[in-house]
Design a binder for these strands. Sequence first.
DNA 1: ACCATCCTGAAATGAGAATTCCAAGATACT
DNA 2: AGTATCTTGGAATTCTCATTTCAGGATGGT
Lengths: 199, 199
Amino acid sequence: MPDIKHFDPDATLETVVRLFWRQGVASTGIQDVVTATGLNRSSLYATFGGKQELYLAALRRYLELRSQPVFRRLAEDERGLPAVSEFFAGLIEARCSGEYARWGCMVSNAHAGAENSAPEVRAVLDQHHRELRDALYAALVTADCQGQLSSSADPGAAADLLALIAYGVNLRSRAGADDASLRKTVTAALDSIGVRAAG
Amino acid sequence: MPDIKHFDPDATLETVVRLFWRQGVASTGIQDVVTATGLNRSSLYATFGGKQELYLAALRRYLELRSQPVFRRLAEDERGLPAVSEFFAGLIEARCSGEYARWGCMVSNAHAGAENSAPEVRAVLDQHHRELRDALYAALVTADCQGQLSSSADPGAAADLLALIAYGVNLRSRAGADDASLRKTVTAALDSIGVRAAG
DNA sequence: ACCATCCTGAAATGAGAATTCCAAGATACT
DNA sequence: AGTATCTTGGAATTCTCATTTCAGGATGGT
């Protein structure tokens, strides 16, 4: 009996993700969303609720479709340090070139804004951090089992450290940080964790 | 002939800094500024210009009065690695407890928002980054001269790395990161740079 | 073909934003 | 004391924002 939706909520949400990701929630108006998606206000509100709920849905979608697959690949990679190295190479690549260059990470961006005062947003931030750290930890444990770590390196502390560095990359990339410089910096960090010539 | 100002622009700007620092520029209204400073709209606009100029003035004041003194102290410290260690201890302390706990760093926060699209803002961001990196570099060179660095450590790369970590601390502290955990992470990073038992 | 149900479009609402204006008050030089 | 000049207070203006409303159109099961 009911009429069906005349649009794809999934594709719409993806468009919304990109808007909030690039511009942030505060500087993105519902009008921007309407224009970008081609949707009508009514359909938007009927489908997603208000702006806050829309943002939250977009943030969760970002975590699920952009972050988690990368985290999973890292955690399940059996190579150890090369997996970590590749993770950072991909991160810097994504942050500095291509379609999303200079957009940073939507979750990292959320840290700095006022949007993080909402408990639901905070929960996504915490989840993202936990999953990032755990993925790094898993890869580092794999590396350790294969004797790739210097004897003094603690996988737990190193995972925390690399997670922090990832946030730094995300942040600085938004201000136009040079990707070659970021790559060099991250390489130095990984060298200090792994076995080295002088170690 | 002219009337004089009936308020202290410097004290006013300091109040504005705290507003923008805590809430960000997008979620802070001129009304908030008027209420917090007790000033009148007219005086505000006559003294500082519009909101964008006010934010820029506040951001510059933050850099000058909050960041640069700390950078200078770090750069001029003759102790080497202990100076770096103390810098991070102070950073984490400031970010996690006291009056400004969970506020993050105003400059780091600016990275993530839409305000960084303005060239003047971007310039402050770049200046902050350069000065932070250079201060760390100076301290690390001092450390190197005193034989405090492991032989494989490059002061330049290490400075870049530590700067990135500082941004990570600033960001995560806004989401309520545990200060003990941050301390431990940073300690691990410094250990990997300095001479160590196993190195 | 009917019609309950949902979707769609555009206008309306109302709150809150930044900025401007102007009359009244205060100042310091002459 | 007079006065030119700046400051101040608060209302006024002009937008833009998020959200709601509602009439009309489309759908698909009966």
